[in-house]
Amino acid sequence: MPPTKHRPKLTQKELRAPDEFTTFIDSARDFFVNNLTQVIVSAVVVVVVGAVVIGVYYYERNRDNVASSKFYDAITALNAGKNKDAETQFKQLADEEPGRRLGRLARFYAASAYIADGDLANARDSLVAFLAEERDPLFRSLALTNLAVVYERMADWKKAAGAYQQAAADPGPEQTRAQLGVARMLAKAGDKQGAIDAYRGFLTAHPFAQQRQDVLESLALLGAPADVAPPSLGASSGPQPVVIH
């Protein structure tokens, strides 16, 4: 007869001890039940926040598209010479979207429409508002030059000279024009010597400028001797022809 296997007896202490896995499950269930409301609220918050983020994204995209469409319509009107329509459309866009790039640029282009229409006061105000926020060097140079033109047409020589000086301070497509504008405004303001110095400084900095002859004529009108040497082909003027001996 095979030997009988004896199972170990459980002590009273072991019988009273809870099973660890069962205890963990029970604790998790109790925690979930006790915190069910908080869990549900948290889940709802996550869903709501996600929905808001998605909604804001598509809302902003839609506003971008609307702003682009309005800007295009205004540019089209400006290019077609419909200045009044362009003024109205650009101003509306600038007022509706002051925080968007196209909304800020609308002030710059609105000024162009005002200038073309001879409305200098509104052109000035639009450019001043644009420059107060614009940081792009190219657009600042263009806007400052246009503002100087507006002041010049308004016969405000001092402010025109100041705007031209700011435009001339930074490299850009309008720098040469702005430098000459400074000299011209000084002459109109009665600062004869200042204008002469500005014209001579221009010739020194730009000896081969297309405007050289005009500058020399302006100096002559101011009674200044033409003591600026004409440009010559020196060692630093560029590539030289090869001489074969």
Rank of each mutant, 00 (worst) to 15 (best):
Y57E: 08
Y114G: 07
A123Q: 02
H206W: 10
K158P: 00
D85G: 01
A74D: 05
A143L: 05
Q240R: 15
K159N: 15
N35S: 13
M1A: 05
R212Q: 07
N79K: 14
T4D: 11
G238F: 09
T37V: 11
Y59N: 10
D191E: 13
V44R: 06
P241V: 13
L138Q: 03
L36G: 07
Q193N: 10
V49I: 15
P230T: 05
P2C: 02
K9M: 12
N35D: 06
V39N: 03
R7H: 09
L221E: 12
Y164L: 02
Q210T: 14
P18V: 12
V128K: 09
V150P: 10
L102H: 00
R184T: 11
K13V: 15
V242W: 00
L78P: 00
A106F: 04
L142H: 10
A195I: 05
R7I: 01
T37H: 09
V48S: 04
T4V: 11
D19P: 06
L120A: 04
W157K: 01
M154H: 01
N35G: 08
T37N: 14
L15T: 08
N79L: 11
D119Q: 10
T204L: 13
R124E: 15
V45A: 15
Q240N: 01
T176N: 04
H245N: 12
G55M: 07
D119R: 02
A209W: 06
V66N: 00
F32G: 05
E133K: 12
Q38E: 02
Q211A: 14
M185L: 08
V41Q: 05
K13N: 15
Y59M: 04
P98F: 01
I25E: 14
R177T: 13
A187C: 05
E133I: 05
